[in-house]
Design a protein around this nucleic acid. Sequence first.
DNA 1: CAGGATCCGCTTCGATACTG
DNA 2: CAGTATCGAAGCGGATCCTG
Lengths: 127, 127
Amino acid sequence: MTTDRDWSCNDPQKRIEWAAATTEALRVLEGKWKIIILCQLFAAKGPLRFSELERLIEGVNQKMLIQQLKQLEKDDIVRRTVYPQVPPKVIYELTETGFALGPSIAALIDWAEMKRQRTVPTPADCG
Amino acid sequence: MTTDRDWSCNDPQKRIEWAAATTEALRVLEGKWKIIILCQLFAAKGPLRFSELERLIEGVNQKMLIQQLKQLEKDDIVRRTVYPQVPPKVIYELTETGFALGPSIAALIDWAEMKRQRTVPTPADCG
DNA sequence: CAGGATCCGCTTCGATACTG
DNA sequence: CAGTATCGAAGCGGATCCTG
């Protein structure tokens, strides 16, 4: 893991520039559902249909899902493929850039799992 | 890396339950500035003062920074320590749970860096 | 099935001004 | 320095109706 990498910088001005550039790059992940969408796409290990995403992501509605997918597509994180048939079929999958997020997503999923195991079996539940 | 881990599940119902639980766990990272804040705290390899965070995170305003930090504190991701002195000094640092996000954060930073290097030197700039 | 368009209320965000 | 208070702007969420 790269946990021990050193991003700090002796030059305060460069440190701020680095921070600004990082902020800018992460801006494409802004949006309430984007990381969750990416988690599901990554965990699926393959393309997902719109309806599958909708079912996997609890609490999202069509409008928001479409909006966030559009932005991810525009930012070249996911690719949208339309099959010209009736009824229509549209699949979403990670682009190369999106797939490069794999390590982050995997680590996030692991973290979520750990957090869940740590918080679910609370002693308070035993009365 | 855990990129080759298998989170998929043969049982569709369990797959949906897993997705819901993951969504729920990731909810604490919702908010426009949280991941960016965590990136900066992680890259700093130590506590940061409020004013330092403010300087490092371009585009954030005091109100949002305070709000997001408060939520992160409530969710036990960051710890807030007040030094009772004049002028006031408050530091923020990762808790154990927050620090456990290290691998994700590190990978996100790497991704941002890669994305930057890939998109900045665009051939279009050469006319 | 996979959207698109619009309206509406709610929540979040952003800018400025002010406080201990 | 590290916050609060306030207010307008933007984003989110739900409902409804429509297209191919």
